[in-house]
Nucleic acid binder design. Sequence first.
DNA 1: GCAGTTTGACCGGAA
DNA 2: TTTCCGGTCAAACTG
Length: 131
Amino acid sequence: MASTSQPTPTEGVGEGAGHGDEEDQHAAEAAASSGQQLVMPEDGYEWKKYGQKFIKNIQRIRSYFRCRDKRCGAKKKVEWQPGDPSLRVVYEGAHQHGSPSSSSSCTGAGHDGAANRYELSAQYFGGPRTQ
DNA sequence: GCAGTTTGACCGGAA
DNA sequence: TTTCCGGTCAAACTG
């Protein structure tokens, strides 16, 4: 299940994301652990990354994502620790629209939701962006 | 030429 | 009142 697009109920994403202030991505951790590569877990929605910061308070890197739908105020924060494949996803707000994956059918996710596939590890562990 | 992503700087709030 | 941290926006670069 490393690259599945099956949103686990634990994610609390979608309709239930309304109160998902803090959701642990155990699935992501497992996937990341097995893959050794940090890939943002898909939740059926398309996200746009608008920022990233190292939170010294928790000694972790936090990435900020917003739903690509302007009318949707859903936000997502992904935290991970350098050297540790464990990912923590925190959802804020609820989506005011249906999941795009449903409209695009199964194939829609298309590329397995390539739009949601952010290689977080590559951003820190020296991925393709090695300048 | 367009879309998306990444990095840095700035602003606001809390301690 | 000052300092620090968190969060967001804009500009630039790459694919």
